[in-house]
C-alpha cells in the first residue's frame, strides 16, 4: 500500500479560490462595461485594454524582477484593478496617462506593500486620485455619451451631471439611470452597476452592508440638505445615480483587503463614506467625492477592524 497522506482536519474544502472571487467581480462588471462600450465606443475599449494590460504587465514585472516572487497574475486581481481603474477614468484619457495610472495603482497602491492582501488602500483608487491631482485638466474633461463612438482621444467633451447641476443644468432620471450622460467610462450606467451589485450579493461574493449603508447615508443626508436648500444640494436620486456613487459603493468600497471585516465595522465604514462623499460634493471644491471618501475610510479600516464580531456565549 502506498503511504497515506496525514494531515489534521478538516480533510475537505469548499473549492473556493481567490481567482473565483475575482472572476465573480469581473462578471459583475460586464453589464457596466457593455454600457461603457455602448456610450463611449472606441475610447472605452482603448482605455480599458491599455489599463488592464498595463496593470497585469506591471504586476508581472515587479514580481519577477523587483520582489523576485512567484507570479501572481493568474489570481486575476491585477485584471480587476486594471478594469476598475479604467472605469474610473474618462474614456478620452491619453494612453500614456492611463499607463502612468496603472503603474501607480499596481506599483505604489499594491506591490509596494507586498501585493494582494497587504495593501491598505484600494489600488485602483490610488491610481485614479494620483492622476486626478497630477492631470486635473485631462481627468475632468469627459466625453459626452455617443452611441458606438469611433473617437478616442478626439471625442467631443462635456460636463458631468454633478458639475452640470452646479452650473444650473437639468438632467432627467432616465438618462441618469441608463447612463446617457458624461462621466468616467464605467460610472455612467446606474442600472448596469446595480445589476452587477445584485449578482455579487446573490453569489455571496460581497456582503450587502457596505453598499447599502453608503447609499442609504447619501440618500438621507442629501434629502436633508435638499430640503433645507434645493440650490445647495441636488435631490437624493440625482446624487445616488451620478458621480460614480454606485461604482464606488458596489465595487470600490467593498474591496476585501481595504474594507473592515466585522458587520459593525462595515456599517460604520459605509455610513462614514456616505457622509464624507456628500460633504465633499456639496461643500468641497470637487463636484465628486467618492474616491476621496473611500480612501479616507481605507485609512480608518485597521482601526475599525479592532471591533470584534458577536461571539457565541459572550452574553
Amino acid at each position: 500500500m502506498e503511504k497515506m497522506i496525514i494531515s489534521p482536519s478538516p480533510h475537505i474544502f469548499s473549492g473556493d479560490t481567490v481567482q473565483k472571487r475575482m472572476r465573480n467581480v469581473l462578471i459583475a462588471l460586464v453589464p457596466a462595461y457593455l454600457a461603457a462600450l455602448n456610450y463611449f465606443g472606441l475610447g472605452a475599449l482603448a482605455v480599458s485594454l491599455i489599463s488592464v494590460a498595463s496593470c497585469v504587465t506591471f504586476e508581472y514585472l515587479i514580481n519577477r524582477f523587483l520582489l523576485k516572487r512567484p507570479c501572481t497574475i493568474t489570481d486575476l486581481s491585477a485584471v480587476l484593478t486594471g478594469l476598475l481603474l479604467a472605469f474610473n477614468l474618462p474614456s478620452n484619457l491619453p494612453w500614456w496617462i492611463v499607463i502612468i495610472g496603472a503603474l501607480v495603482a499596481i506599483g505604489i497602491g499594491k506591490m509596494a506593500y507586498g501585493g494582494l492582501g497587504t495593501n491598505p488602500f484600494n489600488p485602483a483608487l490610488v491610481g485614479r486620485v494620483f492622476l486626478l491631482i497630477s492631470f486635473p485638466a485631462e481627468m475632468t474633461t469627459w466625453p459626452i455619451a455617443e452611441k458606438f463612438s469611433a473617437h478616442y482621444m478626439d471625442a467631443l467633451t462635456g460636463a458631468t451631471p454633478l458639475a452640470g447641476i452646479r452650473a444650473g443644468e437639468v438632467y432627467n432620471y432616465m438618462d441618469l439611470l441608463i447612463g446617457r450622460i458624461g462621466g468616467s467610462m464605467g460610472e455612467v450606467s446606474a442600472i448596469a452597476l446595480l445589476a452587477g451589485g445584485v449578482f455579487l450579493i446573490a453569489t455571496k461574493t460581497i456582503r450587502y452592508i457596505i453598499p447599502v449603508s453608503i447609499l442609504g447615508t447619501v440618500a438621507v443626508f442629501t434629502a436633508i440638505l435638499h430640503a433645507v436648500d434645493p440650490t445647495l444640494c441636488a435631490d437624493p436620486l440625482t446624487h445616488l445615480l451620478t458621480g460614480g456613487l454606485l461604482l464606488g459603493a458596489i465595487f470600490m468600497a467593498t474591496d476585501y483587503v481595504t474594507s473592515p471585516m466585522t458587520p459593525l465595522g462595515q456599517l460604520i465604514y459605509g455610513v462614514a463614506i456616505g457622509l464624507i462623499t456628500v460633504l465633499i460634493r456639496v461643500f468641497g471644491i470637487y463636484p465628486e467625492g467618492m474616491s476621496f471618501a473611500i480612501l479616507i475610510m481605507n485609512a480608518v479600516t485597521p482601526l475599525l477592524n479592532r471591533l470584534t464580531p458577536a461571539r457565541y456565549g459572550a452574553k
Partner: peptide, 10 residues
C-alpha cells in the same frame, strides 16, 4: 495564498 480578508472564515 495570502489572506485577502474576505471574512469568509469569520
Amino acid at each position: 495564498q495570502p489572506c485577502i480578508r474576505c471574512t469568509s472564515c469569520m
